[in-house]
Amino acid sequence: VHHSSLTPEQLISCIMHAEPPEIYLMEDLKRPFTEARMMMSLTKLANKELFFMISWAKKIPGFVELSLTYQMHQLESCWLDVLMLGLMWRSIDHPGKLIFSADLKLNREEGNCVKGIVIIFDKLLAATTRFRELNLQREEYVCLKAMILLNSNICSTSPEMAEDLESRGKLQLLLDSVTDALVWAISKQGLSFQLQSARLAHLLMLLSDIRHVSGKGMKHLSDMKNNNIVQVSDLLLEMLTNGS
């Protein structure tokens, strides 16, 4: 079935099935934490998650119909936003904690060992709190994550991409479909029309906060790598270098 003929409910069902599995660091982060150990654990997890993210993107209906150039640009533009939204979703029922994985749960004080990371932890915790206050639903979460992927590079100035009108059109249609799905997910909640609009606005506004934190995160990770505090694995290095 082509994605354009899917109902919002069917589209959400497909996006739900694309969700990555729960991930594990699979090793103990030894205490007391050190800057190098914590950064190594966080980047190791991020690298694992990147493989799952690419697999996830390929399962979003219509994504693989975009040109390879578009697929690469979308992923390199949004990967840290997607990782951060996933982190917020995992942490939503754990006030004050960031659930990086089932076996790596950190509070803000534990971030003190890494120079400059507490301010990022605080922003992540604040956005997570906002999602908790809004009682973010799983269907809304998966739509928001797909929207990050599809919207991440919509204002690209790359001539190569501007000329690829076919992919550009497909991308816009896909984004419209996921937006419809999000509107549908909100409409199921029995809210007044006015409250539905307000909820949609509140959820979408949080995406700009996530964009802001991911920019800080990219800068922080680049600095850590450039100062040789952490070694970054191949895929993560490629995404960091090309995405920033």
Partner: peptide
């Protein structure tokens, strides 16, 4: 070509029909 060169791993993972997770 330069884009593909810059994105060697991502390009391979997207192009390959095998799941990226299995290729990891």
């Amino acid at each position: 070509t330069s884009l593909k060169e810059k994105h060697k791993i991502l390009h391979r993972l997207l192009q390959n029909s095998t799941s990226p997770v299995d290729l990891a």
